[in-house]
Design a protein around this nucleic acid. Structure first.
Length: 439
DNA sequence: GAGTTTGAAACT
DNA sequence: CAGTTTCAAACTC
């Protein structure tokens, strides 16, 4: 039994900052877990003792099953980190594959999680960022925020640690997840910019307001999926870091809802039609600025007196905050794709067109319609509810077979994951076929 | 390219 | 919350 088992922590949370405060441990020195989940019942090993947020903003967590080396790494296993690791952790860049608000695509380790949270417009203000060393509440003192941030810290920053910990903690890994807002995940420092899975890219500005499920993500350990099963370059990148990631941390998370919904069309539209802004008075720090609204830095724009760049991080951060104060959903996509299996965007807000009759590009609804028509079919539209249902059925069959055969849990999981890999291969193949991608 | 129109964002 | 102003993109000439 790990000495951390049963350890209780409190979360001292202000609006933008917070820390995990261990009540005590066997050696009198605080130790911190690197995973705390909030409203995440599917994360074994940790439980929040007091599910309701208390008035003093403390929440207590208990580590139930600290990590042991698992021959079958799972996403739900995370290794503990010592307090000294926290103290010794030096600022380092965490690459964020597609977070538009990360400066030059990177977070600083020392960056408050709330800042990271704020920096991820699509996650929005409803998100909580939780991390083992410091857990920061998001923007709202609500009870429904289900985003969390997982982290394990780099070996290079480690101080004292047990051999078991050494074997588990190898490389910084952070994940920001907004389960509440649709299961969006941001994985930090998982891959180099050239190794970003397309499946994640497409969900950057996806619609997530319709989400209400607490945890609809399918967690897939890419270690368990062979390259051949992945079958395409988007996936093979996962093996890129196989040797450097801790067990359980190298995880490809496939969001069930993402699979269902053809998300990202608005984002694709933006990227496709990306053009320099011409802002002159807003300093590109208002939502008038498309770059800003999409969480992009101005790049090669024709704007004047632009503050939407890395040199003005502070101003930009304040502007983002101001926007979120005015409208917590300010950075959420205006166009979503709620209708499963369809391509047409769903205007989550609704336009207020009067004179244009929604027939000019002034109207965002019209813009999206034009975009989708021009681009024929969003690849993810191939993933219909039927496909998802069929996939889930296959996985259930595998689970049942494993149960019948009396296989161990790791073995059963492997079977299911292998099946999932095969399903993904078929789905991707189908998408390629239907969209002529790569043909 | 300048001027006008338009609707979203911001402000009061 | 409604009305007004500001803003930048879309549009017209």
């Amino acid at each position: 039994m790990n000495e951390l088992e049963g350890q209780e922590y409190s979360y001292r949370g202000a609006t933008s900052e917070g820390h995990m405060i261990p009540h005590r441990n066997a050696h009198g020195s605080p130790q911190l877990t690197n995973l705390v989940t909030h409203h995440m019942p599917s994360a074994p090993g940790y439980s929040r003792i007091d599910e309701t947020q208390r008035e003093d903003d403390y929440a207590t967590y208990r580590i139930l099953h600290p990590v042991a080396c698992d021959p079958m790494p799972q996403v739900t296993h995370y290794s503990p980190a010592t307090y000294s690791e926290y103290i010794l952790a030096q600022p380092s860049h965490y690459h964020c594959p597609y977070n538009p608000w990360a400066s030059q695509g990177a977070f600083h380790h020392g960056m408050p999680s709330a800042e990271m949270c704020r920096g991820i417009p699509s996650i929005g203000p409803d998100a909580y960022c939780l991390e083992g060393y410091s857990m920061h509440q998001g923007f709202r003192h609500g009870n429904h925020s289900n985003a969390f941030l997982l982290s394990s810290h780099g070996e290079e920053n480690m101080g004292e640690k047990s051999p078991a910990q050494t074997s588990n903690i190898q490389q910084p890994v952070q994940v920001v997840c907004d389960v509440d807002a649709g299961g969006q995940l941001v994985m930090l420092n998982q891959w180099s910019p050239g190794h970003i899975p397309r499946s994640m890219m497409t969900g950057v500005h996806s619609e997530f307001q319709s989400s209400s499920a607490e945890d609809r993500s399918i967690h897939v350990d890419v270690n368990s999926l062979s390259t051949s099963e992945m079958g395409n370059s988007e996936m093979t990148m996962s093996s890129h870091n196989t040797s450097s990631l801790s067990p359980g941390s190298q995880t490809l998370v496939v969001e069930q809802e993402d699979v269902v919904q053809p998300k990202g069309c608005e984002r694709l539209k933006w990227e496709k039609s990306k053009r320099p802004c011409n802002c002159t008075k807003s300093q590109c720090l208002k939502l008038y600025c498309e770059c800003f609204a999409y969480g992009e830095f101005c790049n090669n724009c024709k704007c004047v007196n632009c503050f939407n760049n890395t040199e003005h991080d502070l101003e930009r951060s304040q502007a983002v905050k101001a926007c979120l104060v005015r409208n917590p959903g300010a950075f959420r996509p205006k166009i979503g794709s709620r209708k499963q299996g369809t391509v047409k965007g769903c205007h989550t807000k609704g336009c207020n067109c009067k004179r244009s009759g929604c027939l000019k590009n002034y109207c965002e609804c019209y813009e999206v319609t034009s975009f989708t028509d021009d681009n024929q079919m969003c690849p993810l539209a191939s993933i219909t509810p039927d496909v998802v249902e069929a996939t889930c059925g296959c996985l259930l069959v595998q689970a049942e077979e494993a149960e019948k055969e009396g296989l161990t849990a790791p073995h059963a999981e492997r079977m299911i994951l292998e099946e999932f890999g095969q399903c993904l291969t078929q789905i991707v193949g189908s998408i390629f076929k239907s969209t002529n991608i790569g043909v």
